[in-house]
Structures are given as structure tokens and as C-alpha cells.
């Protein structure tokens, strides 16, 4: 069963960290990714650019409006995701709990829809 782990944090929080602590954080993430690759559970994963690079697109009455942002200075933003194929929801939750951002913010674990159907 595939799960997407959505990673949220507030970049300003980490900007206050020492370079040492930041490096330690990245290597923690690298470690988890390596383990997930070796276990055959990792399906995909990407980091997203900082929210300041975002474009928000709305179309109302056929008229598109594109704005920069949102700038969420004080809020958490989605900074990336990984998709894992694992045996159970418990396992997906276990992986999320290891992610460093879970200590300071929150990870979302969401089942990914599939196309298998047993009889309806």
C-alpha cells in the first residue's frame, strides 16, 4: 500500500539554527532515505522550493488570476514529500515519526489512491 508523507515546516525556524545543527539534520534525512531505498520501500520523494517561490493560480468566471505567494511568514508550509510502499499504515506512521521535522512540526501520512478493485 502506498502512502505519501507530507513534510511541513517553517523555514524561519531552521534559519536560526547553527550550520552544524542544520548539517546534522540533513544527514539524518539522508540516512532515512538510504534506509528506505535499501528496504525497497521508497517510491518517490521531492523537496519543494521555499514558499516565496510559489505562484497561486485562481480562475473565477473564466478569468485566471496569478499571484505570488502565499507568503506564510509565521505559518508552516509544505516543503516536500516522500511516497513509500509499505506493509501497513503503522509502518508508514513509523517512518513519519522518524523524520526530524516531526519533532518540531507535523508530518501528514496519507494513503495514495490505487486502481485495484475487488467486486463492488
Amino acid at each position: 500500500m502506498k502512502y505519501m508523507l507530507l513534510i511541513y515546516n517553517n523555514p524561519a525556524f531552521y534559519e536560526a539554527w547553527s550550520e552544524e545543527d542544520r548539517t546534522a539534520l540533513f544527514s539524518e534525512v539522508d540516512q532515512i532515505m538510504t534506509e528506505l531505498r535499501e528496504s525497497g520501500e521508497l517510491v518517490a520523494g521531492e523537496a519543494l522550493a521555499d514558499g516565496s517561490n510559489t505562484k497561486t493560480v485562481r480562475v473565477r468566471d473564466g478569468v485566471p488570476a496569478v499571484t505570488d505567494g502565499p507568503y506564510a511568514e509565521a505559518k508552516e508550509q509544505m516543503v516536500g514529500y516522500i511516497t513509500v510502499d509499505c506493509e501497513s499504515e503503522e509502518r508508514a506512521v513509523q517512518i513519519a515519526a522518524r523524520w526530524p521535522d516531526a519533532k518540531y512540526f507535523a508530518m501528514e501520512v496519507r494513503p495514495v489512491m490505487h486502481t485495484t478493485v475487488v467486486d463492488v
Binding site: 502506498k2 531505498r37 535499501e38 528496504s39 525497497g40 520501500e41 521508497l42 517510491v43 518517490a44 510502499d85 490505487h114
Partner: peptide
């Protein structure tokens, strides 16, 4: 068939 990257499946089998 299982909609995962080949590397993922290869690793799963190897493990």
C-alpha cells in the same frame, strides 16, 4: 505492475 520504480522493486527482491 505494482507502479513502483524498477530500482525499488529490484531492492525489494534483493532484500
Amino acid at each position: 505492475a505494482f507502479l513502483v520504480p524498477e530500482a525499488t522493486m529490484a531492492q525489494r527482491i534483493s532484500r
